[in-house]
Design a protein around this nucleic acid. Structure first.
Lengths: 138, 138
DNA sequence: ATCCTAAAAGAGAATGATTCTCATCTAGTA
DNA sequence: TACTAGATGAGAATCATTCTCTTTTAGGAT
């Protein structure tokens, strides 16, 4: 996704297209590792030293609010961000803080079918995400 | 789980049985809502005003390290805790911060079978958790 | 029952992550 | 080109958690 595409996505959401927003979303796509806020700030400091820390947090919040980013569910303490918008799952490494996206339409259908038939008492399902924990082989 | 059972679980893990630990684990079981650290601290302040905040954090960490508690994966910022030790899943409310446990052995088997046959490239699965987002009817 | 000490706790300071505030800048509309 | 609501910069403030040092205590040994 190049800067023009990012700009388009921002306008599509009714957000002003600012160089800071493009830089920050580019950073996340470039890092491509469900980066923490700190990772993003470090990258931005190196590549766009004039963007302030407060701006990074504000832009991240704004992108999340407008569904251009998602916060990754982790065990608390720090924010991590995920630019992939299509429904997907995550692989969590037990040994490091590595997180990878996992897409599996067959499994999605299997689970959807299951809940279509069964449902959950007192609960209307809107989204199902798998958090798969294990070890990467490399 | 009463205090005696809690004491037993602590000794079983080789942990000293202290009143603070019993109080804190009791609090979490009593709250029964995947409480945040703050929720737990508030409850402890009311019921055991002599237990200090630092102690609460230290006890929580100790219980997590010894598998008497798990941290709940949320979108960052704060810690939440889960005393249920059996493998299970979570229902997340889209409208509030309510989280409920969800156990479904049939579904567990379905997913286990699926991955037994298919596997994930370059990844050794150790645990699978569903995060189901939606709305509670009440 | 008593003694001993490593482990735990109390208290508050320190740290790190994020949010807030206010003055200034600027994207984009008219 | 002008205008202004929205965005940003910068740093202070806040919040959640960790750290440090002194004191207390659980539980094992005797």
């Amino acid at each position: 996704m190049d800067k023009k595409e990012i700009a388009n996505k921002l306008s599509d959401k009714g957000l002003r297209v600012t160089p800071q927003r493009i830089a920050i979303l580019s950073a996340i796509l470039h890092l491509n590792n469900h980066p923490t806020a700190e990772n993003i700030i470090e990258y931005i400091k190196m590549n766009h030293p004039n963007i302030s820390v407060g701006t990074v947090y504000k832009v991240l919040d704004s992108l999340v609010e407008n569904n251009l980013l998602k916060k990754v569910k982790t065990e608390g303490g720090i924010m991590r961000y995920d630019p992939l918008q299509a429904n997907h799952h995550h692989l969590f490494c037990e040994e490091s803080d590595r997180i990878e996206d996992y897409e599996d339409e067959t499994l999605d259908e299997l689970i959807s079918d299951y809940f279509r038939k069964k449902g959950i008492d007192n609960f209307k399902i809107q989204n199902i995400q798998l958090h798969i924990t294990g070890k990467f082989k490399h």
